[in-house]
Amino acid sequence: MSKRIQSYSIERQKARWGWIFVAPTLIFFSLFSFYPIFNAFYASLFRKKLLSLKPPDFIGFNNYSYLLKSPDFWNSIRATVVFTLGTFIPLLIFSLIFAIFIMSRKRFQNFFQMAYYSPAVLSSVVAAVIWLLIFDPRGLANQWVNFALNTPGIDHKWLASSVMVQISAMMVYFWKYVGYFTIIFIVGLASIPQSIYEASKIDGANDWKNFWYITLPLLKPTTILVSIMSMLQCLKTFSTQYLFTQGGAPLAPINVITLNIYHTAIRDHRIGRASAMSIILFIIMLFFTWLQFKFSRTDEVSY
């Protein structure tokens, strides 16, 4: 009996310390994440203008029904989906290829890691400004492509055609974040025990078989992590599209949800409608986070 009481109190003590350690993070998240989410949801139920001092009108779910009927909002969903699919798939494939390339080097591993990672350190605004200069009709992009394809004088309309401006936005994002995900893959690759490769070598497996039957399956949790992370990041993309439109690119092809939220709140002063849009984006992202949890539970790997 006394043993049970003792273990019970130890458990309680442990739990208490657990709560103490977790409390700062919980408070932080409550203040800076949960409160803004609830506040945004609350604001989304009102017709509220950013500058007005008058009490806002309660309109229930009218902002949501307006958005679901708005062609502009559906265009933003389209632009976000196209950008996300067009960016996160190449990001996933190439970051894995670059990670394997770096890990296979015997020398200059640190140099390559630094070189690939450096664009991720740059602010998105600086990156987009650099690329705006590159994509100028008289800029380097046209010069390089025309030199490579021997097509002098062709304007590839990097920012001026609705298809090319979407591809350009994808290129900038890919360039900026491929290094970041490469580093995550490198960590995943480094955590695979060398003994497995040694055993397969004794069994006569070649590099290709090693990759397909050892590396790829054991890297599955990292691959899922990278795919979900990159997908969420792509769904939140803003600065590249914002700066492209400031640089004269047409808005509609790259009017992603975040850019639409920004315009609705800052240009149109309709904070209630912008909040409704951000709640919809939050639900979309929550769905993908749920997917991540679902896959990661069934794919735990033990060596």
Binding site: K157, A160, S161, S162, A249, P250, L251, A252, P253, R267
Partner: peptide, 18 residues
């Protein structure tokens, strides 16, 4: 400000997006 950006959208869609 919103009307100006709507005009911009219209003009630039004609000039650039066909």
């Amino acid at each position: 400000a919103k009307i100006q950006s709507l005009i911009r959208e219209a003009v630039e869609s004609v000039m650039l997006a066909g």
